[in-house]
């Protein structure tokens, strides 16, 4: 099963490499990884998605918790949550029909064209990983030049918070 694990990590040198190293060392998968500072300068928030059976996921969360740099951790998939991935995608768009088609699909997905060139469009799209996948699939006709995704960032719904 796919899981979204969200971690509060000490903002220390080497901390990120310990998290990432753990996955390769123990043969776990990382599907996406997203990390950035938080409002508290001493902490980073890291969200990763991984796939595994319940036993594996249990080991992954235990192993992550064991890292001295990991302050707190939650498996967001255990409860209601919001997940967002951001994609920037550059596609070839030359000629009226092709440009219209790209524009239309972008609108349907509620994306934005954020850069326009004579032959290319750069589109920004935010949503779940699934939605972004669907968009890429829908663009199959167009020539995709580049895809950049931030990786999933997630947060629990309601009152539940991950903080010190």
């Amino acid at each position: 099963m796919r899981r979204i694990i969200s971690i509060l990590l000490e903002n220390e040198p080497g901390a990120l490499s310990r998290v990432v190293g753990l996955f390769s060392q123990r043969g776990y998968n990382i599907e996406t990884l997203n990390v950035a500072p938080t409002e508290d300068a001493t902490l980073s928030r890291l969200t990763l998605t991984t796939i595994g059976d319940d036993r594996t996921i249990e080991q992954i969360t235990k192993q992550l918790n064991k890292l001295v740099d990991v302050v707190k951790l939650v498996d967001l998939t255990e409860g209601a949550h919001i997940e967002r991935d951001l994609m920037l995608i550059k596609v070839r768009a030359s000629g009226g029909a092709a440009r219209d088609e790209v524009k239309r699909t972008t609108d349907i997905f509620r994306g934005q064209i954020v850069d326009v060139g004579p032959n290319v469009y750069t589109i920004q799209l935010v949503g779940t990983g699934e939605k972004l996948d669907a968009f890429v699939a829908a663009m199959a006709e167009a020539e995709i030049l580049e895809v950049v995704r931030s990786g999933v960032a997630g947060i629990a719904r309601g009152e539940k918070v991950l903080r010190l």
């Binding site: 080497g14 490499s17 310990r18 001295v68």
Partner: peptide, 16 residues
């Protein structure tokens, strides 16, 4: 050394 020893230590530090 912090990198080489990472998978075989409980924790490591580098003096800054």
């Amino acid at each position: 050394m912090v990198g080489i020893s990472r998978p075989i230590v409980k924790h490591s530090f580098m003096v800054r």
